[in-house]
Computed example of a mutant assay.
Amino acid sequence: MDIFAFWITLFVCMAECVYAENRCPEVMQQLLKNGFHRDLLIRVNFGTVDEGTGSSIVAVKVHLPKGLYVDPYELTSLQMHNLTQALVITDDIDLEVPEYLATEVSVLIYMRPDPECVSCFRAILPLHCRYHRPTGSGGKISVVLKNPEILISSQKSFLSMECLKETEIEAPCSQKDLYICRWDSMKFKPVSKELKLQIPVGLKHHLTLVCMVTLATTILCSSLLLSALFKYECISFVQTSLQN
């Protein structure tokens, strides 16, 4: 009987977990554009709409690996045009360093209601790929973008308790108001798997050729600039002499 009761209890618990998971929000991540400069689209679908949904503030915390970064100056420009509400948590982002010298970046994005879905929130974050160290075989390197962390601040709870994690998180209340608020971290159903970006890498045996071409191009361009500058100064000198 004890074994039978154990299996019945286990079956009931698993059924409750599956049912609770099905009631939790769905989260979808999608990469837009191609190349080294992409846009990350994140959409959260609660599935239902009530008073609590409309009064809630939803944010997403994105953890970027060393191979990806955000440009704080670009985000500031987008915020001025009211195109995004992203807050970079990591300090001192170096935009120039390659992947092997970079550090991981965390970004907090305050989501907005999706005009195409009444029960959805969405956010777009511009991403940029870093250059990687050249390899012997070349090709491409995969950079994995893990699932984000979904946060919610609501005066009226409308989510099932099974969809809320036990721990609360402290984070700025908004992108403009840096006062610290308490947020609930949500469990969710990922619609898609972890995203992978394919980043091209160079070949080590091309190093000498690249250095020689770069040096030759630099010398040629500098010579052309000096030549143009010298001609301009000569013409200005002759014109000044004739006027005098």
Rank of each mutant, 00 (worst) to 15 (best):
Thr103Asn: 10
Arg112Asp: 04
Glu96Lys: 14
His128Gln: 13
Ala102Asp: 12
Glu162Ser: 15
Lys189Gly: 00
Lys146Asn: 06
Phe158Arg: 11
Lys176Asp: 15
Lys140Thr: 14
Leu87His: 11
Lys156Cys: 08
Ser185His: 05
Pro126Thr: 05
Ser137Tyr: 04
Glu168Cys: 12
Pro115Arg: 03
Met111Cys: 07
Glu99Lys: 11
Met161Glu: 15
His132Glu: 06
Lys189Gln: 15
Cys129Ala: 13
Glu166Val: 11
Cys173Ala: 14
Glu166Gly: 15
His128Ile: 03
Trp183Ser: 13
Thr167Trp: 10
Lys176Ser: 15
Leu164Ala: 10
Asn147Leu: 06
Ser157Phe: 11
Arg130His: 02
Arg112Leu: 04
Ser153Glu: 10
Ser142Trp: 04
Thr167Glu: 15
Leu83Gln: 14
Leu127Pro: 07
Glu168Gln: 15
Ser185Asn: 10
Lys156Ile: 13
Ala102Ile: 00
Lys187Leu: 11
Leu108Glu: 04
Lys140Pro: 05
Pro134Asn: 03
Ser153Gln: 12
Pro126His: 08
Ser157Glu: 15
Glu99Met: 07
Ser185Val: 06
Ser174Trp: 11
Gln85Asp: 11
Asp184Trp: 13
Phe158Asn: 12
Ile141Met: 12
Ser153Trp: 10
Tyr131His: 09
Tyr131Arg: 12
Gln85Ser: 11
Thr135Lys: 00
Ile141Thr: 14
Gln85Gly: 02
Glu170Ile: 07
